[in-house]
Design a protein around this nucleic acid. Structure first.
Length: 474
RNA sequence: GCCCCCAUCGUCUAGUGGCCUAGGACGUGGCCCUCUCAAGGCCAAAACCGGGAUUCGAAUUCCCGUGGGGGCACCA
C-alpha cells in the first residue's frame, strides 16, 4: 500500500515549492490507489505561527488536494500533529541512547563553534564517561540528544530521481535529535513519524538530499526499513534567485488573489520539474492523477514563468463553462455595471481574460467613457479620421434610433448594409462608433457587441457625446 | 573551506548511441482571419557549456574543466 505524506511546518504561507511537493505526493498516492497523509510539523516553538495551520488547510482545499489522513481524519496513525507526539519522540530517543547510537550533549548553545568544518564531530560530550554524565545530570545541567555518527564508513542510498548517492560518514555531523526543550528536531521527528505512519514514499525538496544519509543511519539503528526517496528539484525565479516572501514573491494564495485559477496554478506547477512525455500541457487535476509518474521528474531546478502561467490560466479560463466563468468574473465587476446585462459582458470577456484581476480595467469603460483625445478617431487600417467619424456618427445615429431589434446581429447587419450603401469599409463605420462608445483604443468586443450591452439609450447618448466632442474640435 | 547535486532555444521541456539538418510549449517577430482587442490558423528567429575519451556513429556513455544550485543550526 502506497502511503505518501505532505508535512509542512506552520511557519507562514504556502509557497510554490511546498505546494508542488504536496501535489506530487498527492498524485503519487492517487495514482497508486494509496493514502495521502497530512502531518503538521510544528516542532519549532519559536517560528510557529498557529494561524498558518488554517492557511495550510485552506490552500490544500483550494488546490483540490484532499488528504485521506491527518488532523481530524484519523486513520489509525495519529496524532498527526507533532507537538502532540512528544512522548513518542522521547521514547525513541531513549532507545537510541540505549543502543549507543545517540548521546547526551551538555554543551551550551553559545559554546558551539560558529562555522568551520564539522563542529559537532569534536563535541566533547560524545566521549563523556557514564560517571560524568550522571554527575552533570545530577547537577541539573540541561542537555540535548545528539545522533552518534560512526567514525568510519559511508552511506549509499538510491533516490528515485537523482539515482545512487554516497556520502562519507566523516561529512556528517552529530545532529541534534531532541532539543533541550524536549521537542524533537525536524531531522528526528521526520524519521520517526515517517516510519510509524508507514510512509512508503518520502517526497521533499532537493535541499534534503545531502542530509538523507543521516536519516538512513537512524533507520539503520532502529532496524527500520528505508522508504523510497523522491527528492524534488528546486523551483526558482526567472532571474535565478529563490522565491522569497520577504521580497514580495507570491505564495499560492497570493496567486489566487492575483486572479489565477487554482486549477491552472496546479497544472502549471505540475509541469515545473515533471513532464508527461508527450506534448500535452493542459491537465486537470484528475487527469494528472492518471498520468503522473515519479520516473519522469527532472533533476535540474526549474524557473517559474509568470508568462507561461498566464497563458495556461487563459487556457483554463476558456475551458470553463459560461456559467462558471460568469460566476467567477462577476465579483470583479464594478457596481456601476450592474445595470447592464453582466452575463453578456462575461461572454465577451471569457475568451479575452488571462487573469481575473485584469477584469476591472477591461470593463471600466462600460461604467463611464474616459476622457479621450479626438485623435482616437484616426485609424489607418479602418480608413478613419475625425472628419469621417463625425459624419458617420451623425448618419448612423438616426439609423440606429430607428432600428427595431436591438441586438448584436441586427446592429451588425444594419451597419454593414449602411457601409455598403455608402461605399465605406465596414471598419470605417465601426471604428467611430466603437470609439464613441468606449473612449479607448481596444475593447472586449466590437462596436455592435458593445452597443448591445449598453442598450439603445446609452448607445445613442454616447454617440451624441462623440458628435459634440468632434464638432467642438473641428 | 569541505561535501552533495545539476547542466538542451530567453523560459518550461522532449530526447535514454543511429529515427536529430535536435521536437513541442510560453514569450518574441511576421502573415492570415477580422467591426478594435483577444481567441484561432500559418510561418520565422532561437539551444545540445568547453575539452578530451569510448564507438563505425554521440545531445545521449566515461573523464577533466567551467558554470550554477544545495547542504554543513537546539530551522525546517
Amino acid at each position: 500500500m502506497v502511503r505518501t505524506r505532505f508535512a509542512p511546518s506552520p511557519t507562514g504561507y504556502m509557497h510554490i515549492g511546498n505546494l508542488r511537493t504536496a501535489l506530487y505526493a498527492y498524485l503519487t498516492a492517487r495514482r497508486h490507489g494509496g493514502v495521502f497523509v497530512l502531518r503538521i510539523e510544528d516542532t519549532d516553538q519559536e517560528r510557529n505561527i498557529p494561524e498558518s495551520v488554517a492557511a495550510i488547510y485552506k490552500s490544500l482545499e483550494m488546490a483540490g488536494l484532499e488528504f485521506d489522513e491527518g488532523p481530524g481524519k484519523d486513520g489509525g496513525y495519529g496524532p498527526y500533529i507533532q507537538s502532540q507526539r512528544l512522548s513518542t519522540y522521547k521514547e525513541h530517543a531513549q532507545k537510541l541512547l540505549a543502543l549507543g547510537a545517540a548521546y547526551r550533549c551538555f554543551c551550551k548553545k553559545e559554546d558551539q563553534i560558529e562555522d568551520g568544518e564539522n563542529p559537532n564531530r569534536r563535541d566533547p560530550c560524545r566521549f563523556l564517561t557514564q560517571e560524568e554524565i550522571s554527575g552533570k545530570r545530577a547537577a541539573g545541567e540541561s542537555f540535548v540528544i545528539r545522533q552518534r555518527i560512526p567514525e568510519e564508513g559511508s552511506v549509499t542510498f538510491t533516490d528515485a530521481v537523482y539515482g545512487e548517492i554516497t556520502v562519507e560518514n566523516s561529512q556528517l555531523d552529530d545532529q541534534v535529535l531532541l532539543k533541550s526543550d524536549g521537542f524533537p528536531t525536524y531531522n528526528f521527528a521526520n524519521v520517526v513519524d515517517d516510519h510509524l505512519m508507514s510512509i512508503t514514499h518520502v517526497m521533499r525538496g532537493q535541499e534534503y538530499l545531502s542530509s538523507t544519509p543521516k536519516y538512513n543511519l537512524l533507520y539503520r539503528s532502529f532496524g527500520w526499513e528505508i522508504p523510497e526517496y523522491i527528492h524534488l528539484p528546486l523551483i526558482i525565479k526567472e532571474d535565478g534567485t529563490k522565491f522569497s516572501k520577504r521580497l514580495g514573491d507570491p505564495s499560492f494564495e497570493d496567486l489566487v488573489s492575483m486572479g489565477y485559477l487554482p486549477d491552472a496554478i496546479i497544472n502549471y506547477i505540475a509541469l515545473l520539474g515533471w513532464s508527461p512525455g508527450n506534448d500535452q500541457e493542459f491537465f486537470t487535476l484528475s487527469e494528472l492523477e492518471d498520468v503522473f509518474s515519479i520516473n519522469r521528474i527532472s533533476k535540474s531546478s526549474a524557473a517559474f514563468s509568470f508568462d507561461k502561467l498566464k497563458w495556461l490560466n487563459g487556457e483554463h479560463v476558456r475551458a470553463l463553462s459560461q456559467d462558471a466563468f460568469h460566476a467567477l468574473a462577476e465579483p470583479y465587476y464594478p457596481a456601476a455595471l450592474m445595470t447592464y446585462n453582466t452575463r453578456k459582458i462575461s461572454e465577451l470577456l471569457q475568451v479575452r481574460t488571462e487573469r481575473f484581476s485584469d477584469i476591472p480595467d477591461m470593463v471600466a469603460f462600460f461604467a463611464a467613457v474616459p476622457d479621450y483625445d479626438v485623435e482616437l478617431y484616426r485609424h489607418k487600417k479602418s480608413k478613419c479620421d475625425p472628419e469621417i467619424s463625425l459624419k458617420i456618427l451623425k448618419d448612423t445615429k438616426s439609423l440606429l434610433e430607428a432600428l427595431k431589434t436591438w441586438d448584436n446581429d441586427h446592429l451588425f447587419i444594419a451597419l454593414k448594409a449602411f457601409a455598403k450603401e455608402f461605399g465605406y469599409k465596414t471598419g470605417t463605420v465601426m471604428w467611430p462608433i466603437r470609439t464613441a462608445l468606449s473612449g479607448i483604443p481596444a475593447t472586449p468586443g466590437g462596436a455592435t457587441a458593445l452597443a448591445e450591452v449598453l442598450g439603445r439609450e446609452e448607445t445613442l447618448n454616447r454617440m451624441q457625446a462623440g458628435v459634440e466632442k468632434l464638432e467642438n474640435s473641428l
